[in-house]
Design a protein around this nucleic acid. Structure first.
Length: 431
RNA sequence: GACCCCAUCGUCUAGCCCGGUCCAGGACAUCGCCCUUUCACGGCGACAGCGCCGGUUCAAAUCCGGCUGGGGUCGCCA
């Protein structure tokens, strides 16, 4: 039976690195039909905060992971102290300056690591380790060993920054008479600058990525690819599928640099391939969180707007920035559209307006047919009329396909906005 | 400083365990071309890599050793 765990400390938000470690641990358990435990390492009572804990739990859920057990180390202090006392009685630990120290002898220690093979330590820098602090709380190394042993964790999956802790912990397992589990130290994630993923790099917490408009499925897919590969040149893979193929021994030993470019590509890819109805729900949630959702919104309309921008946006935030005209009428014409609006096409647009207003089928195919016919009638190339009309309808120089956009906006708004452009030219002419 | 980890295109990686099929495959990014009402999407193509040295071998990205480079840890933080 496989059993793994993820043991976050609620002293900060869940960041990219932690999420990836959690993911690999979860994947390893699920790929083998095992169980997964969430253990909250809140032994540092001063630094642990409930808001961090809530954020961590929310992020893990958002990414699509679940767990079979969840417990807090802060509920188990008595137990840790009991084991420490046992060590004192056995002469393996001693009380000093109000704290309890575990004493150990040097010996060669071998770590059984699923990712990097065996790691051998020939020397340790110290010969004693604090296990119970003077305030009565346990230290990380001690509570970690006891919980992993008692919880029946078969493989400890954690970041490679814990490798130096492992020999000390193995000594504790042995002193306590527990069996030693297998380990899997996953490599760290580096920031694009090469250093550790931290303050230097803009966004590090999972929540920030959510706020920026990344899809959970895309972010998870990206994280899965960072250090592991399903092979066969596959890049797009869901959590559910990764669960089938994940093999922890194939996780890379080397550190990986976080690439926002690749995440962006994956996110755009997911936006394109996502089930339309589901994307609608996700977008609605996002817009609501951003306080951009109209009081009376129509999911069908939002799905149509998304179709308009499919292949043109990378994050959900782009909808707010670029599809503003789909939700509001109070936009002005961008500065960079001056060149397009320089020439006055009022006459031709008036013809277009009249023709379109008589159209009964306001579908994009019919609109395009009429639009081209009008161009021919007034002696303009299609491109000459397309650009000013786009500015009229969107306020922008670039945007979605014009005829599709017209269909989505509907006849009434199109006519209204064309009229507005004609009066814009009128005013310009008077100045 | 001590202990430990790592090393394939700029980046993520396949290949490495079981040497030849690899003058190293895919992807992102970049740059061209095509498509086109703009921007994109898409299609096609280009650029670009086995850190170095030595060994083993008929043959090494693949095995061994050394070097160099990068990283982690050395808290009554986790």
């Amino acid at each position: 039976m496989f059993k793994t765990r993820f043991a976050p400390s609620p002293t900060g938000f869940l960041h990219i690195g932690g999420a990836r470690t959690c993911l690999f641990s979860w994947l390893y358990a699920r790929a083998n039909g095992g169980t997964f435990v969430l253990r909250i390492e809140d032994t540092d009572t001063g630094r642990s905060k409930k808001e961090y804990l809530d954020e961590i739990i929310e992020s893990i859920r958002w990414l699509g992971m679940d767990w079979d057990e969840l417990y807090h180390q802060s509920d188990r202090f008595d137990m840790y102290r009991q084991y420490a006392r046992q060590l004192i009685e056995e002469g393996k630990a001693c009380e000093k300056e109000g704290a309890i120290f575990f004493k150990y002898e040097f010996s060669q220690i071998e770590i059984d690591d699923l990712i990097r093979g065996n790691i051998i330590f020939n020397e340790l820098p110290k010969k004693e380790e604090v296990i119970i602090k003077s305030d009565g709380s346990p230290t990380y190394n001690f509570s970690c060993v006891i919980d992993d042993a008692l919880g029946g964790i078969t493989c400890v999956v954690r970041g490679e920054d814990h490798i130096p802790n492992t020999p000390k912990q193995i000594l504790m397992y042995q002193a306590l008479g527990f069996g030693v589990p297998v380990f899997a130290h996953v490599p760290l994630i580096l920031s694009p600058e090469g250093g550790r993923l931290s303050k230097r790099f803009g966004a590090t917490s999972i929540r920030e990525y959510r706020n920026m408009g990344y899809l959970a499925d895309a972010l998870v897919n990206y994280l899965i690819l960072l250090g592991w590969s399903p092979g066969e040149n596959r890049e797009i893979i869901s959590l559910a599928e990764a669960q089938k193929y994940f093999d922890i021994s194939r996780v890379n030993k080397s550190r990986a640099v976080f690439s926002l470019d690749k995440l962006n590509w994956l996110n755009a890819e997911y936006v394109k391939q996502y089930d339309k109805d589901r994307l609608g729900d996700v977008v609605i949630d996002f817009l609501r969180a951003k306080d951009f959702l109209p009081e009376s919104y129509d999911k069908g309309y939002i799905i149509k707007v998304m179709a308009l921008f499919e292949g043109r946006i990378t994050t959900l935030q782009d909808i707010i920035d670029r599809a503003y005209f789909c939700f509001c009428d109070d936009y002005g014409y961008d500065e960079d559209t001056r060149e397009i609006l320089k020439k006055d096409y009022s006459g031709q647009i008036l013809v277009l307006k009249d023709t379109l207003s008589q159209l009964t089928d306001f579908g994009c195919a019919a609109i395009e047919k009429e639009f081209r016919a009008v161009c021919e009638r007034v002696g303009l190339k299609v491109r000459e009329l397309v650009h000013p009309v786009r500015v009229a309808l969107t306020g922008k120089k670039v945007g979605p396909g014009l005829f599709e956009a017209m269909e989505v906006l509907g006849k009434e708004k199109v006519i209204e906005r064309l009229t507005k452009l004609i009066s814009f030219w009128k005013e310009e002419g008077q100045e």
